[in-house]
């Protein structure tokens, strides 16, 4: 066999082999790879290159080496999932760098990064002052994770003791003017509901680029034609306003009426409406 045919056969064969093996190796992004992943992958690449370019003269030997290397990686991957010790050995453990706001210099040196680099990493996480950090660890792949001091953490509804409504992810029901049936089924409505809602907004289906339904069943529409102003859904605000108005009405009635019994009844109704408004408020305001 001529040499160039051999090379082509090897390239095609190993290329197909690589295409099959790569998805099995996993879907970790390159940035999340540890040095073990990186080096083991590198060895595979070099082995393949050597076999193709005939540096390894005996092809069988090269393929055996490649096969056993992959087998070894497979075994290690299996053991890593089974045993914490093996995992720590290959992937390393996380190293605490900052604790209670103080840098642990010894640990920092053992990770091999300098103070400059630590500050630069912190800055990339929008922390410019060391005093704002309560706790920081270096993950096995070299990333630094930071827990800011309690008072520097973002404000959440829980901090405010606010009650909020649970939400479900919004569903995209129209894309590029086409109705998507599967998301519609997920929220439990059908095409005729959607068509009625689109009619209510006063637009045509083929003018819609994206339409999404939120967990309260309200439709948000983005049009191809951006010069058309669409009304923002205000049903929730309207409902709040209506309920408040009803409460005010009942108070007025109770003041106006001469009837003793109904004076009391109206007052009670006003209280009841107030109660309902309070109950619904977290779900209507958020």
């Amino acid at each position: 066999m001529e040499e160039w045919i051999q090379v082509i056969l090897k390239v095609v064969g190993l290329f197909i082999f690589l295409a099959i093996i790569l998805p099995i190796i996993g879907r970790k992004p390159i940035s999340a790879m540890t040095s073990f992943d990186f080096i083991s992958g590198f060895v595979i690449a070099v082995l393949i290159a050597l076999i193709i370019t005939n540096v390894v003269e005996n092809v069988i030997l090269g393929i055996v080496a490649l096969g056993f290397w992959l087998l070894a990686i497979g075994i290690v991957r299996y053991l890593i999932q089974k045993s914490k010790w093996v995992h720590d050995h290959f992937y390393g453990t996380e190293i605490v760098i900052i604790k209670e706001g103080k840098v642990l210099e010894e640990n920092l040196h053992s990770t091999g990064i300098t103070g400059e680099e630590l500050l630069s990493q912190l800055r990339r996480k929008s922390i410019f002052q060391l005093a704002d950090v309560e706790f920081a660890v270096m993950e096995a792949n070299g990333d630094i994770s930071i827990l800011p001091k309690r008072e520097m953490q973002p404000l959440t509804p829980k901090d405010m003791r606010m009650q909020v409504s649970t939400i479900r992810e919004p569903q995209t029901v129209v894309l590029d003017g086409n109705i998507l049936d599967e998301p519609l089924n997920t929220i439990g409505v059908n095409r005729s509901w959607l068509k009625a809602e689109i009619d209510k907004a006063g637009v045509t289906l083929d003018n819609i680029f994206i339409a999404q339904v939120d967990s309260m069943g309200e439709l948000y529409i983005d049009l191809f034609n951006d010069s058309i102003q669409l009304p923002v859904p205000t049903t929730k605000e309207l409902l709040m306003a209506t309920l408040n108005k009803i409460e005010a009405d009942f108070i007025t009635f109770s003041l106006q009426t001469q009837n003793k019994r109904w004076k009391k009844e109206y007052n009670q109704m006003a209280l009841k409406i107030k109660e309902i408004t309070d109950k619904l408020e977290p779900h209507l305001k958020t």
Binding site: T166, I167, G188, S215, G217
Partner: peptide
């Protein structure tokens, strides 16, 4: 107004996931 509010809450009730 009361009837209107009732209808709106009923629609929300049908749609709400929780």
């Amino acid at each position: 107004n009361l009837k209107g509010a009732l209808a709106t809450i009923q629609t929300y009730q049908l749609h709400h996931p929780n």
